[in-house]
């Protein structure tokens, strides 16, 4: 059993602030008071554990997980793959990664999405997988389309995939979005631009990974996900004892 130890504090200047005026929905949904900083206890350094019984092997293949037999969704066939790491650059194994996205036309399979682009009968738009013992994960899907949204009158989301990751503790829980290299909408998106540091935005942009493509079949993008790192226990810490 590993000796319990805290995770490094979250760099709140790297993450977007709660209130980002150009992303209008954040204005009434952002707390005004400062967060109360909490030294971690058992409640924060533990978190849910998932296993292969929780998911099915085909859940990471969005080309087939909703398609009718013998059919395929419309769109560019892509592989999204990478590693889940922590800030110490160590792999995070066996962690649940869940994704969701619009179809190639920019339409979500969601009862609240009224965009005029059509639903694709062969595309659900969600997938999930567990990272392997080296932190590696992969999905197969179609490249999502850009779509308009109400913020200013004329806002378009860059193509993106939503990603949810658990890590090993509740304090590592993270939801983010992955963007695609070369998309001119990234620089114009008020949601992307909630992030103050351009280097943090770059870290959300997946490069084309030609080496990982399947020739004549599927193109690939690489996306590493970094979760909070953990203190070493070389020296005394006061978390569990006196």
């Amino acid at each position: 059993m590993t000796k319990p130890a805290e995770y490094y504090q979250r760099d709140r200047e790297w993450h977007p602030p709660a209130l980002a005026r150009d992303y209008k929905t954040s204005v009434a949904r952002s707390p005004s008071y400062a967060l109360i900083s909490l030294e971690q206890s058992a409640s924060e350094i533990t978190g849910p554990v998932f296993g292969h019984n929780d998911i099915d092997p085909g859940d990471n293949d969005l080309l087939t997980n909703y398609a009718q037999a013998g059919e395929s969704p419309i769109g560019e066939r892509i592989i999204v793959h990478g590693r889940v790491l922590d800030e110490n650059a160590r792999p995070v194994p066996n962690t649940l990664v869940e994704i969701w996205q619009a179809n190639a036309g920019g339409r979500y399979r969601h009862k609240k999405d009224m965009y005029l682009a059509p639903i694709d009968p062969n595309f659900g738009g969600c997938g999930r997988t567990l990272s392997d013992e080296n932190g590696y994960y992969f999905f197969r899907t179609v490249k999502p389309g850009a779509y308009p949204w109400r913020n200013w009158v004329n806002n378009w989301r860059p193509a993106h995939i939503h990603i949810s990751v658990f890590g090993s503790s509740f304090s590592q829980r993270l939801i983010t979005q992955m963007y695609f290299e070369g998309d001119p909408l990234i620089a114009k998106c008020p949601i992307v631009q909630t992030i103050p540091d351009p280097a943090a935005i770059d870290q959300l942009i997946a490069p084309l990974d030609l080496n990982a493509t399947i020739p004549l079949d599927t193109i690939a993008y690489k996306f590493d996900i970094v979760l909070r790192g953990r203190r070493s226990t070389l020296f005394e810490n006061r978390l569990e004892g006196n």
Binding site: E98, K112, H162, I175, Q203
Partner: peptide
């Protein structure tokens, strides 16, 4: 040589597709 944590982004209005389809 630490890495930086991946920055958070909003779960958006369609979070249900991924987490509660």
């Amino acid at each position: 040589d630490y890495l930086k944590e991946t920055a958070s982004q909003t779960a958006g209005p369609y979070v249900h597709i991924g987490l509660a389809p």
